[in-house]
């Protein structure tokens, strides 16, 4: 990675190096992982990125295997191995956080089209199985023992006008975030009603502690990173 930037002309090395580093797939994965970790709701599955990362992991595994059979010195093999382990951890942790979010809000995700469309094919299948299993569990343990009009897992009773028993993530929690560029016109969704009409602006590279709901669209479009 470093060698490529050195080949170029005499541009400030560190800038170019930073720019290059920040667009490697591992770095992108780290960003996706951080966002997913900090966001209260499930974000869009980074399918293309994950495919590329998986390919790279395979390559790295081949390299490690090759080097260790050839008998390269053990220190450099273990450095390659460590790099591989870190990438693998990021991938696993990214997928795990998503799966655990699905476990927590499965009913809500399954019935909300916007969230449902953010899942990967495997995640959709998992969510379907999970919701079926938990629904069955609730029905067998509780709902079937109740009088007829109260057996829904989503509604308190037949006279409930809407779904009123499905846990949802709290979008009004506060998150730490940072923007790369100057952003303006952010409508705050919390605080006293009088203040809400004021628009909020964000300086680049400054940390803000802000209500997730207010910046939700900017997180989804990738303009703001969560920490």
């Amino acid at each position: 990675m470093g060698s490529r930037s050195a080949e170029g002309e005499q541009v400030p090395l560190t800038d170019e190096y930073d720019a290059l580093i920040s667009t490697t797939d591992v770095e992108l994965l780290k960003r996706a992982w951080r966002n997913e970790k900090a966001a209260p709701e499930i974000l869009r599955f980074e399918s293309d990125l994950i495919i590329r990362v998986r390919e790279q992991i395979e390559l790295m595994e081949e390299t490690v295997e090759e080097k260790s059979t050839v008998g390269t010195d053990p220190l450099s093999v273990s450095l390659y191995q460590m790099d591989l382990d870190r990438t693998l951890f990021l991938l696993r942790s990214y997928l795990r956080i998503r799966i655990q979010k699905i476990e927590k809000y499965m009913f809500h995700i399954r019935k909300t089209e916007e969230l449902w469309n953010r899942l990967s094919k495997d995640e959709k299948f998992f969510t379907e199985r999970c919701t079926d299993d938990l629904k069955k569990h609730l029905e067998e343990s509780v709902l079937s023992t109740l009088p007829e009009n109260y057996q829904s897992y989503e509604r308190q009773s037949v006279i409930s006008e809407e779904v009123d028993m499905v846990p949802e993530p709290r979008l009004d929690t506060f998150v730490l975030c940072r923007s790369k560029e100057y952003l303006t016109g952010i409508q705050l969704e919390d605080g006293p009603v009088d203040d809400r009409s004021k628009l909020f602006e964000m300086e680049p590279d400054v940390l803000y502690f802000i209500c997730y709901k207010s910046i939700k669209p900017l997180v989804e479009s990738g303009k703001i990173d969560l920490l």
Partner: peptide, 30 residues
């Protein structure tokens, strides 16, 4: 329920080709 959910997770992991039950903490040393 525990058995069923465990099977569902196992099936996800075998499809997604990753074992999510290892690597629970970030690796410092391999």
């Amino acid at each position: 329920y525990f058995k069923k959910h465990s099977a569902a997770l196992k099936s996800y992991m075998s499809k997604a080709l990753v074992d999510l039950t290892v690597d629970m903490v970030p690796p410092k040393d391999p």
